Simulated assay, not measured.
Amino acid sequence: MRIAFVGKGGSGKTTLSALFCRRLTADGAPVLAVDGDINQHLAEALDPATGPFTAPPLAAHLGEIKDLLRGTNPRIASREAMTKTTPPGRGSRLLRPLGDDELHTRHVQPVGGVPLMVTGAFDESDLGVACYHSKLGAVELYLGHLVDGPAEYVVVDMTAGADAFASGLFTRFDMTFLVAEPTRKGVSVYRQYRDHAREFGIPLAVVGNKVTGEDDLLFLKEEVGDDLLTHLVHSPWVRSAEQGHPQGTLEAANHHALTVLRETVDARVRDWPALHRHAVEFHLRNARAWANTATGQDLATQVDPDFVPGPASLT
């Protein structure tokens, strides 16, 4: 199952992504974490004492990733003709989470016991000539060619704010958790996400964070209503861990909140046809908007009408 953590910058979504991944790992569940934020801090959040993350970022090898994923698909002539929205078809290379393939072998590195991939930071060479969404293209392609199942978890720490809507990446998830502080700014991103998510039938739940009392909780309930799933209280343990000397254990209330998140994910049933339908829709949008002109091809022909996504496609 694919889980996205989104929210305003500073809401604590990276910290919560790390806590959720570590909880899954401690429970013995197979999990892969992906840092898809412009600020690449997930490795540090997973293990503040970790050394340098040395596995190459996905965005630095986008060409090779395209070559791997297009496989022998006759509808995709070259890596140059493959965009971030190109959906899989017959002949495409499909991946299993943490499978024995070139992508996972090259790009995954354990951090704090959690396998992690990163998109790559936005650096000086990108200034004025690129947007961060170009780096997220590798994540979108990866999820589009991933065949995962129940009790397998791919957790993506997404870009802050509503930037995820600049591509179809936000439709790639089984569950999106929006992390919100109990402030007006904290819930502002929620309204943007709520409206777009409802348009496409994307499941969205709000996780309150840094809640200090009943007034904070009441504010969140008034602002987001039934979308409020659970909340985390201010955590001295998280603060001490981030300072490099964790004291005690995670608070019982916060431990319970992580349990609620997992139970919510586990209750979801993957809708493969809807997942593929969204992928095709955004690919055709991209093709009409810019990709046909950029590649000099009609990229609508990349859509394989006879391709059936899901576990059966692996054979």
Rank of each mutant, 00 (worst) to 15 (best):
V206T: 11
Y193V: 03
F177T: 06
H255R: 12
G213K: 01
W290L: 12
F170T: 09
W237Q: 01
V238D: 03
E281C: 01
L178W: 07
T176L: 11
V156Y: 04
L232I: 00
L261A: 03
A257R: 03
T159E: 15
S188Q: 14
L204R: 07
M158L: 13
S235P: 08
A160M: 05
P246V: 08
T183Q: 10
A241N: 10
G213I: 07
E222N: 15
R191G: 09
P246N: 05
V269A: 10
A197E: 02
E263Q: 14
A279H: 11
G201N: 07
S240A: 13
R262W: 02
G244Y: 09
E222F: 07
R277T: 11
G213N: 08
T249P: 00
S240K: 01
V187S: 12
T212M: 13
R288P: 08
H245F: 05
L178R: 07
L228T: 03
Q247I: 13
N209R: 03
V269S: 11
R270F: 04
L258E: 10
V156M: 08
L204F: 09
A197L: 03
Q247K: 08
A164P: 04
T212N: 12
R184I: 11
R172I: 03
F177V: 08
A253W: 00
T230F: 06
A197Q: 01
D163K: 08
H278Q: 14
D226I: 02
A164V: 15
R285G: 06
A197S: 14
A205D: 12
W272H: 04
F173H: 04
T212E: 15
T249W: 00
A197W: 00
T264F: 00
L220N: 09
V189T: 12
W290V: 12
A197I: 01
E263P: 03
E222C: 09
